[in-house]
Amino acid sequence: MLIDKIKTLCSLYSGEIIADRRHMHQHPELSFHEHETAAYIKKLLDLLEVPWRASAGTGIIGTITGSKPSSTVVALRADIDALPIDEENDTPYRSVHKGIMHACGHDVHTASLLGVARIAQALKDDFAGQIKLIFQPAEEKYPGGAKAMVEEGFLNYPGLDAVIGQHTMPELEAGKVGMKPGRYMASNDELYITIRGRGGHGAQPHLNVDPVVIASHVIIALQQIVSRIANPAMPTVLSIGKMFAAGSTNIIPEEVYLEGTLRTLDETWRKEVHAHIEKIAKGISESMGGTCNVKIQGFPGVHNNEELTAKVFQYAVEYLGKENVVTLNTWMAGEDFGEFSQLAESCYYRLGVGNKAKGINSSLHTPTFDVDELNVFNMSSGLMAYIALRRLGNK
């Protein structure tokens, strides 16, 4: 049976997959600078005789073609960049690059996809069609690698049937996966607001236009978008996380700089919020004698195709057992995987990596994040390979 073949191969290659993960975890690179990581991936694909092409700078697209004739293509995606976090774990594979760490599991995603390459190459005679291996750069930083890869057009293959992605989830026990059909992850917009006034002596406020006071009113007013303008049934998050004013105890500055984030699950409402933010920030600033510049940039949300996700759920149950596949709630974090939904039906599922008994339960984007390697890599590559081959077989 296909499951037995894949599980045997996954077990056979698990040591190599873990070694891949540890190498990448030790040598993390930030968004758009993943040169060593890309070189490592290319070298391994060459050893596996998997043809590849470069994309979006440090990105890579590998191709595995089954021996049986078919024009159907399934794409699998992994992101390869790390975060500007100083690792605090004391492990043999701790990051050697100070201030840079794989704290979001992208090393796990990449190692898993390299494992898929090993498995699919070994099973070329068992399937028809093609598997595209997408190693995407810069998921953590706007404008993101996904958008660039899509715009280059290298993924516009005739017959592209589905794009599948996975992401670590420390809250979920290793050995389990979870997914949600429909709206799953929020859009992710970065807000940059600059409010300008007229600086001067703090003891002469009547001669100045205080941008600190203006900014304070803007921050409070923006919260009304969520509490009074948004439909309560539509999840919306608007947070200002940074406020910088280069004044002093007796100095009113010339300008105040704000940064924040906007998350929501509806693209139409998202565009409306953009307009509300600009109108409120500029309106308040001008009414108080100042000026305002608003810049908003970000990614669309992740929408899992309902029919495809139902199939992926079924495949996961077949491979892992019903008790190891769960339905998730909406997650308000952002991800540029949604860009790939323009190309074909897509499904983005979560890979359990936690193990409380071993003390492996730190959240994503923390300096102590880690994964239960043994219980993750004995199934992550195999499951993804099985999903791809089952989808190709059904087509």
Rank of each mutant, 00 (worst) to 15 (best):
Leu9Cys: 09
Glu34Thr: 15
Glu171Pro: 08
Leu133Cys: 02
Leu351Trp: 03
Asp161Cys: 08
Gln121Trp: 01
Ile100Gln: 08
Glu318Phe: 01
Ser11Ala: 05
Glu151Cys: 00
Glu88Ser: 00
Glu16Leu: 15
His35Val: 12
Pro158Ile: 15
Ala245Arg: 00
Leu343Asp: 12
Met384Tyr: 07
Thr236Pro: 02
Ser248Leu: 07
Pro69Ile: 10
Leu9Val: 09
Glu286Gln: 09
Asp189Glu: 09
Ala203Ile: 04
Val312Gln: 15
Glu139Leu: 02
His102Phe: 07
Tyr13Glu: 06
Ser227Asn: 04
Ile119Gly: 11
His303Trp: 02
Leu172His: 15
Arg228Thr: 00
Leu258Tyr: 06
Met101Gly: 02
Glu254Gln: 06
Asn156Lys: 11
Glu87His: 06
Ser380Asp: 00
Lys141Thr: 12
Glu49Pro: 01
Ala38Tyr: 05
Gly241Glu: 04
Gln26Gly: 01
Val108Gln: 02
Arg198Trp: 11
Ala310Leu: 11
Val371Thr: 06
Glu307Asp: 12
His102Lys: 09
Ile17Glu: 00
Lys295Ser: 08
His276Met: 11
Gly153Lys: 10
Pro92Arg: 07
Asn324Glu: 14
Lys271Glu: 13
Asp125Phe: 09
Leu207Ala: 14
Pro170Trp: 01
Ser248Met: 08
Gly202Phe: 04
Asp20Thr: 15
Ile18Lys: 13
Ala128Asp: 03
Lys43Gly: 04
Ala78Thr: 04
Asn304Phe: 12
Leu30Val: 14
Pro137Ala: 10
Tyr348Gly: 10
Leu113Glu: 00
Val376Phe: 13
Tyr348Arg: 03
Tyr40His: 15
Gly301Ala: 09
Ala357Glu: 14
Lys98Pro: 11
Ser285Asp: 04
Ala310Cys: 10
Trp331Val: 14
Ile277Ser: 05
Gly182Ile: 09
Ser380Ile: 01
Ser363Met: 08
Arg183Tyr: 02
Ile41Trp: 05
Phe369Met: 03
Pro181Asp: 10
Met234Gly: 14
Gly182Gln: 06
His102Tyr: 10
Val177His: 06
Thr368Glu: 00
Ala103Asp: 02
Glu307Phe: 06
His274Arg: 07
Glu151His: 01
Ser363His: 07
Ala221Cys: 06
Pro137Lys: 08
Pro205Tyr: 11
Met332Pro: 03
Thr261Ala: 14
Arg350Phe: 15
Gly321Leu: 14
Ala245Pro: 00
Arg53His: 11
Gly153Ala: 11
Asp210Tyr: 14
Glu267Ala: 11
Leu383Lys: 02
